[in-house]
Design a protein around this nucleic acid. Structure first.
Lengths: 134, 134
DNA sequence: CAGTATCCCTCATGATACTG
DNA sequence: CAGTATCATGAGGGATACTG
């Protein structure tokens, strides 16, 4: 009789794995940029600084909660800067940091692959589905 | 009195937005590669074909459900090929397709950015948190 | 060996309402 | 204007058990 069951061994492997994912740089970057709203906000900010309300309008469909939450995360990671002007009414500007700007080429690489190969993916998908339907 | 409330307008914007996201090539690629297990499987397969059980061991921590589900999705998208050898016991090999291999440079670009800039991100995060804690 | 089927539960997101 | 707080839901993912 083993000291640990197969399930226990796998559970432990998963924990180690999660710990690895939490520290793996590439994984962390993927998690960050693949967030639903991040790429939209970054590309909106690529054109220059924007106010909170401008972003809300530009990225129509985002809730206040997610807009704030996403911007805070980007600010925390040093990718976006937040500037408060304590006028009345208050004014807050968001802007890409130099670090944030270095991310744009990576986003572009993703976009380029997608635009070049998405048709092949769609064709493969259609082919797969037609086989499955048969 | 407006025909549509602000909430209705936003709800409609979200729908249009979701439709846009569903077709946007770059978005779809991001969704695909940022899936929790995809990058692991792709890099495992980058070294050559692997059997189902090999992948399960190599990517320790993945459940059978997610392993199968992820492989099926990759196969459907034409990124991975699945070859069944109906011996007893059955044997199934997975392998990157040529299309799947074109994805590796993109993954490398992500990895390179991460390795070059992750320290800056960590520093920003620490700085942000120490401010917040104050 | 390589899956499929089922249940369950957490977490992320969104809607809504309120505030400095 | 630019948020914060609270609540609800639903989809993703895991554990477990079963199968060709």
């Amino acid at each position: 009789m083993p000291t640990r069951t197969a399930a226990e061994v796998r559970a432990e492997a998963r924990q180690e794995y999660d710990a690895y994912l939490a520290t793996c740089p590439a994984r962390r970057l993927l998690d960050r940029i693949s967030d639903k709203w991040v790429s939209l906000l970054l590309s909106a900010l690529a054109d220059g600084p924007m106010r909170y309300g401008d972003l809300a309008r530009r990225v129509a469909g985002v809730s206040q909660k997610m807009l704030t939450q996403t911007l805070r995360a980007l600010e925390r990671d040093g990718l976006v800067s937040r500037t408060v002007t304590p006028t009345v009414p208050i004014r807050v500007d968001y802007e890409l940091t130099p670090l944030g700007e270095t991310l744009l080429p990576v986003m572009r690489a993703v976009k380029d692959w997608a635009e070049q190969h998405i048709e092949a993916v769609d064709a493969a998908r259609e082919s797969y589905d037609s086989r499955a339907d048969a």
